[in-house]
């Protein structure tokens, strides 16, 4: 029996971030954050920008994303200057994890 597609409104923001990495492959922190805000219809608050950045760091530590470089965030993005942010690529484990959460 074919599984019903997942209602994306029911998946947590962290899962949505991983799903976006699966669809886009490699992304920088700012690009990924903005895509999450767009997909979730969220207001881009400073707090959530930091939360989503932290999600990416957690996912890197747990082997779902791999760091492929660094960028400097635009001065007004995090409310402070010279914030170093990572660029990431999804790993095989990351794809396995999001496939277990989302049926497309």
């Amino acid at each position: 029996m074919e599984k019903k597609p997942t209602n994306l409104k029911l998946i947590p923001t962290k899962s949505m971030l991983l799903l976006l990495f699966k669809k886009n492959g490699e992304m920088g922190t700012i690009e990924a954050t903005d895509k999450v805000f767009e997909a979730e219809g969220m207001k881009p608050t400073l707090r959530w920008k930091w939360v989503i950045r932290f999600y990416m760091m957690e996912m890197e530590i747990n082997g779902m994303l791999v760091n492929v470089g660094y960028d400097i965030a635009p001065a007004d993005y995090y409310g402070q200057e010279n914030v170093v942010v990572g660029r990431y690529k999804i790993t095989k484990l990351g794809i396995e994890r999001i496939d277990a959460v989302v049926t497309e």
């Binding site: 890197e60 530590i61 082997g63 791999v66 790993t91 095989k92 484990l93």
Partner: peptide
């Protein structure tokens, strides 16, 4: 390490 787990890219 960068990751606490062994990873396959």
């Amino acid at each position: 390490q960068d990751s606490v787990r062994e990873i396959e890219a």
